[in-house]
Amino acid sequence: MNDSKEHNQVTIRPAGPADIPGVRDLLAQMPRWDSAHRSMLRDEDLIALNSEGKVIGWLMGNHVSEAWKNVIGYEMADSWLCSYIAWLLVDGSYRSNGVGSRLMEAFRRNSVAAGRDTIIASPQSGEYEEKLLSFYSRLGYRRAASGQVHRGPWGPPENVPLPKSEVNSRSTAPDPEAEAIMQEYVQRLGYRQ
Rank of each mutant, 00 (worst) to 15 (best):
G22T: 04
E52C: 08
R170C: 07
R192C: 10
D45Q: 02
G140K: 00
D3V: 14
G57S: 04
W154V: 07
M76D: 07
S4A: 09
T172H: 12
P31L: 11
L162I: 03
N97Q: 13
N2D: 00
D3R: 05
L49P: 03
M104G: 00
E75S: 09
V99R: 07
S165W: 13
R95L: 06
G57V: 01
Q187N: 12
W87H: 15
A15Q: 06
S101N: 02
L46Q: 12
P153F: 07
A180F: 11
R170S: 08
I12K: 09
K69G: 09
P174W: 07
R95Q: 13
G115M: 07
L132R: 10
D34I: 04
A67R: 10
S83F: 06
E179Y: 04
H63L: 07
A114Y: 11
L162F: 06
A18F: 00
M76T: 08
W80K: 14
R109Y: 01
S137H: 12
S51D: 00
P123Q: 10
R102I: 00
W87T: 14
S165G: 07
W154P: 05
K131A: 06
N62F: 08
M60R: 02
P123H: 00
R38D: 09
Y84D: 11
V23A: 01
I181R: 08
L27Y: 13
S146E: 10
I12S: 09
S165C: 10
R109M: 05
Y74I: 10
A77P: 02
S137M: 10
S93Q: 01
I56A: 03
G22E: 06
S165N: 13
S134C: 13
I85S: 05
L103F: 10
R142Y: 12
R32W: 02
E127K: 15
A36P: 01
L189S: 01
Y94Q: 01
G140E: 13
H7C: 02
S65T: 15
